[in-house]
Design a protein around this nucleic acid. Sequence first.
RNA 1: GUCCCCAUCGUCUAUCGGUUAGGACAUUGGCCUUUCAAGCCAAUAAGGCGGGUUCGAUUCCCGCUGGGGACGCCA
Length: 479
Amino acid sequence: MTANQQTGEGVRTRFAPSPTGFLHIGSARTALFNWAYARRTGGTYVLRVEDTDRDRSTEESERQLLEGLAWLGIDWDEGPFRQSERGARHREAVAELLETGQAYRCICTRDELEVRRQETIAAGGKWTYDGLCRDREYAADCGEHTVRLRLPETGWLGWDDLVFGPSGQDASEIGDRIIARADGTALYHLAGVVDDLDMDISHVIRGADHQPNTPLHVAIYRALDADPPEFAHVPLILGDTGKKLSKRRDPVSVQHFRDEGYVADALRNWIVRLGWSHGDQEVFSRDEIADLFDLEGVGRSGARADADKLAWLNHHYIQHMDLAELLPLTSPYLERSLGKPVETSPAIAKLVDLNRLRGKTLVELAGHTAWLARDEVVFDPKAARKNLTPDAGVLLRDLAARLAVAPAWDEASLAAVFDAVAAEREVKMGKVAQPVRVALTGGTVSPGIYETLEVVGRDLSLARIEDAAARAVKGEFSS
RNA sequence: GUCCCCAUCGUCUAUCGGUUAGGACAUUGGCCUUUCAAGCCAAUAAGGCGGGUUCGAUUCCCGCUGGGGACGCCA
C-alpha cells in the first residue's frame, strides 16, 4: 500500500532535477511524464531542485532549468523546493535512524575502503561494504565518521514497477551504504526518500538509470518505517551510438534545440513519443498529452533519439500554427540572420506565411525570408551566374518595361505579362521566372514568382528587376 | 568483472496466443511544377538464434547471443 493510498489523497508526482547543467532532454522527458501523469490523473505535480551537491550546483543552471520547463509548457503546482533548504530535516532523519539502530557510525576512511575493495576484487569476490564498523556501536564522539544504513543480512528489497513489473534485489547484494557524509550532510538517497515522504509523493517516475538505486531506496523507506511510493522507471533516451545520450557526443540540451529553431510543441511531442506511445497516434498537443498519457503506454527498451522525426514534427507544427503565433517566434531568428532589429511589416508577415512550407526549422524559415528585409539584394554568385546572363538581362529589361504598364499588380495581370514574354521569345516559363526570382531575392528559392512579386510590391520589384537587368546585360555576373 | 534490465522494418512503435505483422519518420519511384519545398500516390523494409509449452507462438517459459544501465562520503 502506498502512502497516498493510505492517506486517501490523489496522485502526487515530482520532478527532482539537480541543477548541474542545462535542461537535458532526458530530464525534460522525465519532467514531462511526471507532469502528464499528474495532469491525467488530476493529481499534483511538485518541482524540487536537488542542489545538495554544492560543488556542482549553480543558480545559473537552476534558472536554465526553470526556463526550459516553462518553455515546454510544463507547469508545476508546488515548489520549486530546494533540497539544500531541507538540511535540518535530513539530519533529523539520520539521527532518527541512528537512534533506532537502523543506521550506525562508520569510521572507515576512503583510503581504507579502497584498499579493501581492491583486495576483495583481486581475490575474485564481489565488493559491498564489509561491515567492519557495523557492530562497533561508535558514539557521536568517535571522531570523523560517516553514517551507514544497516541492512538486513538477507531479504528481498523489491517493488512492483509500474513499467517493468516485479523488480528488486537481495539486501546481501547491496551492503550497508553511506547515507550521511563525514560533514554530517545527507546523501541523495536519504535526502530524496525523506523529501518524497514529506512531500507525500505517490508516484516516482524517473529514468531507468535509477533502477539500481531503487532497492536501496526501498530499504530506506523500511528503515524509516514508511511505505514506499509506486515506482515507474522509464527507459533511457539513446544517442546515435545506441548508448545513453551523452553531453559530449549528442545534442542534449533543450536550449540547443530551441536555438536551432525547433518550436516547443515539436520538441515536446518528440520526447513524449520517445518511450511512450498511444496506438498509432503520432501528433500530440500539450493538452492531448495531459489527457492521454498513461504508464501502460511506456515501453521497456531504450529509444534512440531520431533527429529526422523531430524535424518532421517541427515542420508539421510550423505549418499548422496560427500566423499570429508563428511571427513572433520567427522574429528572433530573422534578426539573428540579419544582425539588426526587424519590424514585422505586412509584407514580411506574408512572406513568412508563404515560406512556412519551405523550412524544417525557424532558422531556415528566417533564412528564406531575410532577403526581403535587406536594403540591397545580396546575390548568390552561383545563382546569378546561371540566371542573370546578358541574354537574361535583355529579357528582364523587356519584362520590366511591360510590367511597368501592367494594369494591375496581381497574379492575373502579372501572369499575362509573363506568358506573353515567354511566348514571344519562345522560351519556357522557367527561363523567365527564374531570372526574376534571382533579381528579386538574390537567390533561387522563393515562393511562387507571382506571389513573390506581390509581396515585394510594384515599385521595389521594378527597381530590383531593372537593376539586375542592367548589371546582367553588362555581363557583371558572368564570371 | 559483478548485479540489474532490454530485444518487431534503418529509426520510433502497434500487436496484450490465431493479423496478408499495422502506423509514423527516413529511403526509393511516380504525379504535380516558374525555383526550392510542400502535397498526393506507390514501393522497399521487421519478430536475433536454439529449445520447450500449446491445436497454434512475435506474443508464455528456459538457454544462448547481442545491446544497454548501474556499480561514489555525485545526483
